[in-house]
Design a protein around this nucleic acid. Sequence first.
DNA 1: ACCCATTTTGCATACGTATGAAAGGCTGAA
DNA 2: TTCAGCCTTTCATACGTATGCAAAATGGGT
Lengths: 342, 342
Amino acid sequence: MANDKITSNDVARLAGVSQSAVSRYFTPGTSVSKKTADKIREAAEQLGYRPNVLARSLITGRSRIIGLVVAYLENYFYPEVVERLSKALQDQGYHVLVFISSIASENVDQITQEILDYQVDGIVLASANMSSELAARCHASGVPIVLFNRLQDDIRLSAVTSDNRAGGRQLADLLVSLGHKRCSYIAGFEGASTQRDREQGFREGLEAAGLALFSRGVGNFRYEEAQAAARSMFAGSEIPDAIFVCNDHMAFAVMDVLRFELGLRIPDDVSVVGFDDVPPARWPAYNLTTIRQNVDDMVAETVATLMQSIREGDGAARRVVLDGALIIRGSTRQTTPTAETR
Amino acid sequence: MANDKITSNDVARLAGVSQSAVSRYFTPGTSVSKKTADKIREAAEQLGYRPNVLARSLITGRSRIIGLVVAYLENYFYPEVVERLSKALQDQGYHVLVFISSIASENVDQITQEILDYQVDGIVLASANMSSELAARCHASGVPIVLFNRLQDDIRLSAVTSDNRAGGRQLADLLVSLGHKRCSYIAGFEGASTQRDREQGFREGLEAAGLALFSRGVGNFRYEEAQAAARSMFAGSEIPDAIFVCNDHMAFAVMDVLRFELGLRIPDDVSVVGFDDVPPARWPAYNLTTIRQNVDDMVAETVATLMQSIREGDGAARRVVLDGALIIRGSTRQTTPTAETR
DNA sequence: ACCCATTTTGCATACGTATGAAAGGCTGAA
DNA sequence: TTCAGCCTTTCATACGTATGCAAAATGGGT
């Protein structure tokens, strides 16, 4: 890799000090006299020397690398997460090593093995599950794991999520208050806790109003599969008058099908609600009523959780559930309180 | 980090061989007898040992890490790039360390310094520029750099781009062939080669038809700034009858303004063309005529360029320019050849 | 000037691993 | 059986750096 690798020994020679002094100069919390520091600074600048993070990790046991597993970046939500999380960690002196997994998480365990090869200081799983065996491995290795927007029963796993169930409940309450009688649901990936909790909250809200789910489809978090689900669910003689689509990304697909293939009007014929509040939900072409996940707060909590675990070195898992906000836009029927609530 | 770190010495002890044998067992191209290999495999499995990539990098000079600098993931194009590039490199046994820079690239040099601290085997710059000084540094360190969808004059920098100029030219030719007389342009970030080349091609195409640009705005690759540019450019008494927006992401913003704020019909009143063919361009809500950048081929060429540079260890820069494809959809006036061309 | 407490410095070693070189083992041909 | 060539193994060392410890230096007080 390096043709002329400048090492701390080169700096020490030029500055007329020991390698140990050079190392201490670059290590916060150690003592170096001003005179020695000046000599080292000049020599390091002249040679263009910077410490080798990887060599340091051998001694310190700290790589300053966080492994990030994401299943797909197709949904506008996750690019935003990656960008914000990378920035937040960059500000803390850490950097994100990205690993792409499959939606169904069947290769996450192999990927986690690869991650551990890099001696990462922590792992963030965004929209992916990890086996208990691997969770135990990471725990034994002292590598903290934070699930981002996902929940698992394993007590060793920290998690930062929105209150998906409450969000689903809010959407049900909204549709009921708008007078909807035939409320349907399009699920995401069945193995995801977000999908399960959003649907559960939605069903509970309907049941509280004496309603049952009118129909249900599965979109697997994919645009095309959500399209297919919508086509199927609106093929009968009686169609839903409102539909909660498990995330915005799929909701766009459903809206496109309703408008451009079936000639239905939103919200006059069907109200559509999503979950996430990704950027296109705000665009006039979609103008989607949805639950906003507060990405900034989720990222901040994720970073705080990671930093605490890394600093304390204990295995104490931390669960943070953040409230989402109901954002009412033009995809739902209008009623008097049109302002944003919650 | 690690509480009970299992090392190759532990494996060697358990297997009754030397640490050197363990190392050779995990190093491709070295010799180990079947008998020794069996002993080592069993011991490693029993202990859950895997080699430490970072420790290896000290000896081999290879970290198996590629630094990836991206300016923003807001534009659907770059999440797709990150995802595909990460996967392709993952398949080659490399992993991507992500660094987020600003759009104007003013902090890329600092970020590159940080990247070099991690002894990366290569760097990919997606939508960012690097100073000549830092390019020289990387060159001296033997770290290959590949610009993704960006060009710079520095001969040390490899690059993989679409033929942005030809794409702009194609779009001009198309609009002219559809009879447009007042063609306008909304620029991206002025410091980006993609913006410059697309505009240049577009202007050349118009000039070849005896037309000049009707009006020009600047969107800086941001949805909101493209909206503002569109509002301004359509405020006069005479408005464009066609508009080339430097990328799809901004084109969506322009389309939203034209339809929902100005009550204009696309393409009856104004044809809109973009560049990239990101997923929403295919969605019925936008149905955008655009130039498709072949992300798969660009990623493949980027990986091939990186692998070659890493393998050969020379500093030979490689420039790959890939043809985009004109994709005609519903945002432009219709004429007889409605099929996709090119 | 001397004494004491604190700071600073260099030496020696370790982190986990790969590799050159020398020694030992194995196999096939004479 | 012996010998030569090739394969395999171990030893010793190095990669770039941080750190414990002992020795040296420094600064303040008497």
